[in-house]
């Protein structure tokens, strides 16, 4: 009954490549933090974190080899997080009496 074609076994090489990429990105993000980019530091740091997270999700968590449903579920989590963060920040950035908001 076991249908082995469905159980995708990822080659070792892929795991080690992804791991190396994660380590390199970790040191890049620490390095970039030491450089003053003004307001762009946070964007760079978050972009790197997102790349790292995507690598883990796709390869370590096997989403790349999973059904479409799994991909949709995983994506839904992040979309709803954007709902929560995006709309709330809309309130705070438009409160004229709060420092850091757009006047």
């Amino acid at each position: 009954m076991s249908d082995h074609s469905e159980h995708h076994i990822v080659p070792l090489k892929v795991y080690f490549l992804v791991f190396s990429a994660l380590m390199i990105l970790l040191f890049v993000t620490v390095g970039v933090a030491m450089v003053n980019l003004g307001p762009f530091n946070i964007y760079v740091a978050m972009s790197i974190a997102i790349i790292k997270a995507v690598l883990v999700v796709l390869y370590f968590m096997h989403v790349r080899y999973s059904t479409r449903l799994t991909m949709v579920v995983a994506a839904a989590g992040f979309i709803w997080l954007v709902f929560l963060l995006g709309i709330t920040i809309l309130d705070y950035t438009s409160r004229s009496w709060i420092p850091g908001s757009y006047q």
């Binding site: 620490v30 933090a33 003053n36 530091n41 946070i42 740091a45 790197i48 974190a49 790292k52 883990v56």
Partner: peptide, 19 residues
């Protein structure tokens, strides 16, 4: 997943401004 959470927490808490 718990690893991913830390991937975000590390830059958010430790790396805000080191220049």
């Amino acid at each position: 997943f718990v690893d991913i959470v830390w991937i975000f927490l590390y830059p958010l808490l430790y790396l805000i401004d080191r220049s």
